[in-house]
Structure formats: structure tokens, C-alpha cells
Simulated assay, not measured.
Amino acid sequence: MRTHLTRRLIAASSAVVVTLGGAATFAATTATAAPSGSTGAGAGVSLLSRVDAAGQQAALAYWTPERLAQAVPVDRVVTGRGAGAPGTAATLGTPAPAAPSAPAAQPRSTSATTGDAPVLPRGPRATAGVVTGDAVSTARNWTGPALPTVGRLYFTQGAGQFECTASSVDSPKGNVIATAGHCVTEGGLDSKNLVFVPGLAGTSQPQGQFAVGQTFTTTQWRTGDQQSAAALNYDVGFALVSPRAGKSLKDTVGAYPIAFDSPLSRVTVLGYPGRSRTADGFTLQFCTGTEFTDNGAGGTSDVATLCDLGGGSSGGPWLRDVDPATGSGTLTSVVSFSYDDNASVLYGPRFGSVVRDVYTRAANA
């Protein structure tokens, strides 16, 4: 049975923004204070993998143009929003089938890899906590300045080839990316052959590819029941990419500052939806909306916003204080899931003390 969790609102003055290792391209301030209620160092942190230089080169070689084209979204749609109903997950959005020559992706315990999300009757949506006056923000192509800070994350889980979205996050060494937890591990399968392609624009890769050397997530996500609210609340992952020619990811593409215990705000959500009726699969899209809390019987303490970004956007950044002229902003969450009875609402985990510990471990690895 899924228990509804009550989310405590954090006063605006408690928000903590971390911009380490000097001024990042999109970082305006540096903060050293830690959020209240932090857990001990390393608590709730799971190191998933370490990949040596040879393994990273193998990952870069693995992702041929044909395999890149065959990758499918690994996003989550959570069902069982009715009181007491168990949760399940299936693919978010409507990715197009892979090319005929593509090997069939293997099914996993919590995500399907092809086809539509289950079509269920939409029940009445609860209204408590929803910001009134907001309409659903229809995903559309990003037409502002190029955003090399956001990109596509490719990886394998088992025999399947998958894709998510990730973003460059400020850190002392400038090598951290943020994404969803289910993009680095799901259903007992840790992701392999991870490659980050920042600034993907159609088939063009203007910033090239960065191989991933280490991946981290929360212990709550990795070891918990990933169909439960208790795990979904911590569906966050971080990864370290290796420098190229002595230049860090941040020095190459910039990086977003990251905030913890951030108050509800107006956010811009970015992602690379997979191929569908409304997306070509290789174009950055976005929604803009006001955050509210998960008020359904699903029971998470996640933040939510009215946005219909489709499959492939998992792990995409939620940014507050976005400057349309520059694309700058502060990372406050990542795309996690959508309920199957209301695909027009996206949910993202709160970045609290546990997520801060995972980020800190990754940033100092």
C-alpha cells in the first residue's frame, strides 16, 4: 500500500545554492552553507561503478551512429495513483519503434522499452496545492541560445540500449552531470557504457562526447522498492565524466549551480524527448510552469509542474531563475516520472540533504 507523505515547505531563506570550484559559466554566486538536517558524510550514497580509461574508450567506441539511433527512452510512468493501489512503471511518452535492424531491447522489471504508456481513464485531479491559473505547458523546441550544458545520456542496461537527459553541474573539478536515478540503475541493473553528449542538436554533436567514469545514486533509490514513493522521492543520479584534452566539462560547456532545500518557484524543465508524434528524438524541448507538491494518492513528496515533456526527458534539469537571453539558471530537481492518469504533469524529487550528500560525494570523487 502506498502511503501519502506530507511534504514540509521550506522557507525561501533556507535555500542553499552550491557553486564550487570557481565561477561556473552560469554561476553568479558561491555559497558554502549546508542545509539544515544534513545527514552524515556519505549517508545514503551508493557508488554504482568505476570505469577505467580503457572501459571509457570502449564506451565511446560502442556508441556508433547506428546504436545512437536505436536507443530508446527509459522513462517512468507510475500507475496505481488510486488509494492503496500498488505502483508500477512503464515507458513515458510514445517513442517510435527502433529501426528494423535494431536488436530488440530486453524488458526489465520496472520499465518497458517500446510502445505507449498504458491508457487508463483519467480520474478527477486533486486540486490542493496546485497553483491556480496555470495551464499545462505544452513541450516545444528550445529556440533560445544554444544550451551545451544540457545533453543526451546514452547507456546500456542488460541487453538494451537507452537514452535519458542530463546536465552539467558546477563542481570543483568541473566533471559532474546530474540525471535521474533510474538512468544509472533500475530493477537491479546498473547502467553501463555511459556517454554524455552535451548540446546535441539533431545529428550534430558540437561538443563531442564525454565518457562517464563513475556513477552515484541515493541508497534509497538503489535498494528500495522502485515502484514506491519512498524510492521515487530519491530518484536522482550523478555521474563523473572524464576531461578531454586536459579540459573539463565545465570549462568546455559551462555548468549550472545546484540548489538544495529550494522553495517552490517557477521553473523551466528541459529534456530530449525520444521520437514521437511531437518530437524528432534529437531536439531539446522545454516547458515552463510553477511548482506545486504531489497531491495525489501516489504519496510522493516530489515537486510537480504542469508539463507534457515525453519519453527521453528523464533526468532533464528543472531550472529556476532562468534568463531567456543566456539560458542560465539554477538546478533544483530532475525529471523523474509522470502518473499514467495525468501525463501532463511531471514530477521531480526534492533536492534535500540526502541528494546533497550524493552530489558532494560525486563532486569530490
Rank of each mutant, 00 (worst) to 15 (best):
E66H: 03
R67T: 00
R67N: 05
R67D: 07
R67A: 02
R67I: 01
L68K: 14
A69N: 12
A69D: 15
A69M: 07
Q70R: 13
A71H: 08
A71T: 05
A71E: 00
V72Q: 13
V72S: 13
P73T: 01
V74Q: 06
V74R: 14
V74A: 15
V74E: 03
D75K: 09
D75G: 05
R76M: 04
R76I: 05
R76A: 09
V77C: 13
V77N: 04
V77W: 01
V78G: 07
V78C: 10
T79W: 10
T79K: 08
G80V: 04
G80Y: 08
G80K: 04
R81S: 14
R81P: 04
G82H: 11
G82Y: 12
G82Q: 13
A83N: 03
G84V: 07
G84M: 03
A85Y: 04
A85S: 11
A85F: 11
A85P: 02
P86W: 05
G87P: 10
T88M: 11
T88F: 12
T88K: 12
A89H: 09
A89S: 14
A89G: 15
A90Q: 08
A90M: 05
A90T: 02
T91Y: 02
T91R: 10
T91V: 15
L92P: 06
G93W: 08
G93K: 09
G93Y: 09
T94G: 13
P95R: 11
P95M: 03
A96F: 10
A96Q: 12
A96M: 07
P97Q: 01
P97I: 00
P97Y: 04
A98T: 09
A98Y: 01
A99Y: 11
A99C: 01
P100G: 05
P100A: 02
P100R: 10
S101T: 10
S101P: 00
S101L: 10
A102W: 07
A102T: 00
A102Y: 00
P103A: 04
P103N: 02
A104C: 02
A105F: 05
A105D: 15
Q106D: 08
Q106I: 14
P107S: 05
R108H: 12
R108V: 00
S109Y: 00
T110N: 13
T110Y: 13
S111P: 08
A112M: 06
A112G: 15
A112E: 07
A112F: 04
T113Y: 06
T114I: 06
T114K: 05
T114A: 12
A117D: 01
A117V: 03
V119N: 11
V119L: 15
V119K: 13
L120S: 13
L120K: 09
L120C: 12
P121M: 05
R122V: 01
R122E: 10
R122Y: 08
R122N: 05
R122W: 06
G123D: 02
P124A: 12
P124E: 02
P124Q: 05
